[in-house]
C-alpha cells in the first residue's frame, strides 16, 4: 500500500483543513498540501476534490484578479465545511489510534 491509496479516502479532510487555515486557490492549496507532507498528492485529485467540495457546499469560492495570469478562483470554508472537517477529525482520530495500536503491536506475520 502506498500513500496515494491512503490519500484517496482522506483528501477531503486534508483539503478542508488547508482551506480552514487560510483561503487559497487551486495551485496554492496543492502546494500547501505537499508542503504539509503529502508529496504524492496528484494535481488532478486536488482540483477535482475542490470542485466536488464546492458543489457539496463545503467550500465557497470567489474570483480574485491576478497580476501574473488569469483570474484565480479562491476557496474558503463554509459552516458546512467546518462541520465536515470536525467530523473527519473525530473519525480520523479514532481510526488512526486503532491502526497505530494494531501496527505497533508485535505480531508475527506469516505469509
Amino acid at each position: 500500500m502506498d500513500v496515494s491509496q491512503l490519500l484517496r479516502g482522506t483528501l477531503d479532510a486534508a483539503a478542508l483543513a488547508v482551506v480552514a487555515e487560510q483561503d487559497g486557490y487551486g495551485y496554492d492549496i496543492l502546494r500547501r498540501l505537499r508542503a504539509a507532507g503529502l508529496a504524492e498528492v496528484g494535481d488532478a485529485s486536488v482540483y477535482g476534490t475542490l470542485r466536488r467540495l464546492y458543489r457539496a457546499g463545503a467550500l465557497t469560492s470567489y474570483v480574485m484578479p491576478s497580476d501574473e495570469g488569469p483570474h484565480r478562483r479562491y476557496y474558503g470554508i463554509t459552516e458546512r465545511g467546518r462541520a465536515q472537517l470536525e467530523e473527519a477529525r473525530a473519525v480520523w482520530a479514532g481510526f488512526s489510534r486503532a491502526l497505530t495500536t494494531l501496527l505497533e503491536t508485535n505480531v508475527e506475520v506469516t505469509p
Binding site: G26, D28, L30, D43, L50, E68, H71
Partner: peptide, 10 residues
Amino acid sequence: AEVEPSLLDA
C-alpha cells in the same frame, strides 16, 4: 476553469 490557472501557475 479550475485547472487552467493552476496549470499556468505550475
